[in-house]
Amino acid sequence: MADLAVNLAGIRLRNPVLAASGTFGYGREYAAVVPLDQIGGVITKGTSLEAWTGNPPPRTVETAAGMLNAIGLENPGLKHLVEADLPWLASQGATVVVNVVGRTVDEYVAVAEALDARPAVAGLELNVSCPNVDKGGMAFGVHPESAYALVRAVRKRTRLPLLVKLTPNVTDIVRIAEQVRDAGADGLSAVNTLVGMAIDIHCRRPVLGNATGGLSGPAIKPVALAAVWRLARVGLPILGGGGISFWQDAVEFLMAGATAVAVGTATFVRPRAMLEIAQGMEEYLKCQGIERITDLVGAANPGARTG
């Protein structure tokens, strides 16, 4: 049996395929067709201190080999997560990473702190990369100084493995990642969506209620893969993702330097995509005579310091 287990920045995963934040709700939504104890883990929808209502519709539109979303981080808030979702996820045997968002540093810190001592939470993913809200989200992730300050503040209040999810909408993603590393993050998550838009030419206005949105799906895979390739030299373990549809895509991300992968939009298309990807990886290892999936990490990237 090939070994698919990985340790991602201190988060132990049965396999390296996780559900990307915001594409898998809180696990319940797809549980009838995706057993949660068969995927690597569930990354929750971005969770804030209080409930957020989200952006006006339309919130999604399909584009060439991809989609735009401007959900605006609608979520029921920390209390709901803790009381309703975490106990249920634990009962399903899910490995849970909570995606954390806030409008201010204090809000991020409060959420992180409240989750610190909870055995149902395996790690945190700090979202400094959502392009669809005015305050918080990407505002923290585009400036090295604010990224540093935020990660530093959160780091002080949590012992949980801390991943920081980066935006590709910057001139130099490596520079941001180095700051995040120096501030004490345990790992990087890359990438969040790319800013994009669509215009309705009959109504002469943007399709999305928020005008711009985040591009995801197969269209962004080459961009995301190159980001992981460059980030591999920062020296932190990487959760790679962006446009992964098939196991071959996932293997490319590992070879570029990712330790595990997040699958999002593909689940909308094929709800069992994560299971198929994990299975495909296992067969690939067998065919290649490789014992451990970790042997692939950075295999194609001479500059990688993550393997």
């Binding site: 898998f24 939504e29 989200g54 519709p57 919130r59 939009t265 909308f268």
Partner: peptide
């Protein structure tokens, strides 16, 4: 409404 997931996971199909 335009739908991505169809199952409540993406929160994309909001109406007022």
């Amino acid at each position: 409404a335009a739908m991505a997931c169809g199952v409540g996971a993406c929160r994309g199909c909001a109406c007022r």
